[in-house]
Design a protein around this nucleic acid. Sequence first.
DNA 1: GTCTATACGAAGATAGAC
DNA 2: GTCTATCTTCGTATAGAC
Lengths: 204, 204
Amino acid sequence: MTRIITDYYVDRHMAPDARERMIESAAVLFRERGVHGTSFSDVIEHSGAPRGSIYHHFPGGKAQLAAEATRYASQYTAGALTGALAHDDPVVAVRAFVALWRKLLRSTDFASGCPVVSATLEGDRSPAARDAAGVAFRQWEELLAGALERRSVEADRARGIATLIVSAVEGAIVLARAQRSLAPLERVADELEVLVTGALVEAG
Amino acid sequence: MTRIITDYYVDRHMAPDARERMIESAAVLFRERGVHGTSFSDVIEHSGAPRGSIYHHFPGGKAQLAAEATRYASQYTAGALTGALAHDDPVVAVRAFVALWRKLLRSTDFASGCPVVSATLEGDRSPAARDAAGVAFRQWEELLAGALERRSVEADRARGIATLIVSAVEGAIVLARAQRSLAPLERVADELEVLVTGALVEAG
DNA sequence: GTCTATACGAAGATAGAC
DNA sequence: GTCTATCTTCGTATAGAC
């Protein structure tokens, strides 16, 4: 699992501690309850971190925690996507990407979604988190677009397909949660597979 | 504009009053700040409705208001979609659907999104609102699938494409807000147009 | 129906001791 | 670093008068 939280820890080669556990917990809770719906108390309880050190670790308060948790989730998903793209097969990558979300939805009985989406929607109180969400989506798009280009798909088309994949999967996760059914995600996955396969055939 | 809020008003053919104004305002505010991010005070201020009558009109409290606002937004969008489908041309309908969201994003400088998505993500505190979101998405899917079927697209394929359209557009709205750019929405719109056109050609 | 007042709890944030 | 206590603000909800 990719563990790039902040330069603070990367630079010092330190093991995950209370600070990182809080970020991880925040990301998990943001999946379920969103940013506004998650309090510091929730994060402390979930992470087992000490109460008195929140503002020591996050002097910027909740906005800072939200931004860091969004970056954490972003990197986590980017890592999964990179792994799925190991063989440079965009169809396989889309399947793996969808499988990741299917597993999450099923294992949490549709209680969890994508924290980056939550950060976007509730970003009016934390612009830093919203901006981190924008960076996350862009990075995922670029990973997918790059893989398509390496399979000879023209750059503009690759970018369009990549954006469609990210948008459609994120949207399907929302539909799945609202309807408490995996069906929307499966239908979207099937359509995306047909589309990507077609684009690869076209590109030769 | 479609104005089907609750049976209460439809049955009595009553003009929009304070109650309906509160529901409309709630929907508008949910677009910007989400459900948790919107307080009763916000709704009262925005709608100009009297303070003392909230629990008279909504004895179920905020959960009831959230559910009714979600149903209202759902019907509003369904009405727009129905209008866009007046000529039974799915490509034109997708363009009109996207145009609606483009206009909203632009006119609010990316501050507004889809309240039905917010209701889904924050539905743990209001299952009724989340369920209303599920119904909304299903209705939009069915409107689009029906139009595709009337153009000879096979039922399963029509359903798949319809789900992809709703998911992709909803997802693109999130990406657009996070990146503060219409580009993701435009790229998704272009890809969807190609895909729908292709499906119609295939269907003959 | 609408008003005011208020109870009640939750949440973010700060201060100062250890 | 972490603790406890506290401040302040806010939001939901209720009660009772008009």
